[in-house]
Design a binder for these strands. Structure first.
Length: 216
DNA sequence: TGATTCGTCGCTAGTCATTA
DNA sequence: TAATGACTAGCGACGAATCA
């Protein structure tokens, strides 16, 4: 019996989703380079367990109720004079109450969402086999950081993974918000899910460039 | 490294809607 | 009207993250 199966069902599902998301590349699958997002994409979560801390989302001034998505990809702006980050989150929701909680966290708000990148994560190698620390790939950083990088979130896109029964009911009767995208859980826990054409197409539609007829 | 705090999610009881 | 299923809110357990 696998480690994942021996745990409680929701923990096993989470673990399966994270296990597959770890195989996804630094740039979200299906997202192509565009003038709209000329900076650097990095995967913030799930991350290497050997790194003490990973990026998370928070509200200004808040030390509680942080959001730790199952999957978090960050697009860092290239300019130190205009720092921001775009984020793509993936949330696996094994219950409807969990879905409601997650949706509320990403709902449009009059306050600002911040992305918090801890120093150990910035200093750690970008991936196994490549010793380049992450901060060297983030063009707005000109020297090794000694403080966490806290950036305003410019754009939020969230992909929710739902159990089949929930997905079908939701797809039949609900209208997603503009930043929300939905997929069946099976699509997230499938082997090589990042190569699935449907998944790539879904995430492609979740890019900041997808809403424009053409870009200059 | 151990203790503490925090976030997530399943379980359960109560409520409501639907159907026979 | 009773049976059934879906949904909701609150609680507690557990693991991850953080702190000292």
């Amino acid at each position: 019996m696998s480690e994942a199966v021996s745990r409680k069902p929701h923990q096993a599902l989470d673990r399966l989703v994270r296990m597959q998301l770890k195989k996804w590349p630094q740039r979200p699958p299906g997202v192509v380079a565009s003038p709209k997002q000329p900076g650097t994409w990095l995967r913030g979560r799930p991350g290497d367990p050997s790194v003490a801390a990973h990026p998370f989302l928070k509200l200004p001034g808040a030390s509680r109720l942080r959001t730790l998505p199952d999957g978090l990809w960050l697009h860092f702006s290239p300019s130190a004079s205009d720092p921001y980050v775009d984020i793509l989150c993936i949330e696996a929701c094994s219950s409807l109450s969990n879905l409601l909680d997650k949706r509320s966290r990403f709902a449009p708000s009059t306050s600002s969402l911040l992305a918090f990148c801890p120093v150990p994560w910035l200093l750690a190698p970008v991936q196994p086999g490549d010793p380049t620390p992450r901060w060297r790939l983030i063009r707005m950083l000109k020297e090794e950081p000694t403080q966490p990088l806290v950036l305003p979130v410019r754009d939020v896109r969230v992909v929710f993974g739902l159990k089949s029964r929930h997905y079908e009911g939701f797809a039949r009767s609900q209208v997603p918000q503009a930043h929300e995208y939905f997929c069946p859980m099976e699509a997230l826990i499938a082997e090589r899910s990042h190569e699935d054409p449907d998944m790539r197409a879904l995430i492609s539609r979740a890019s900041a460039a997808a809403n424009f007829m053409r870009l200059p």
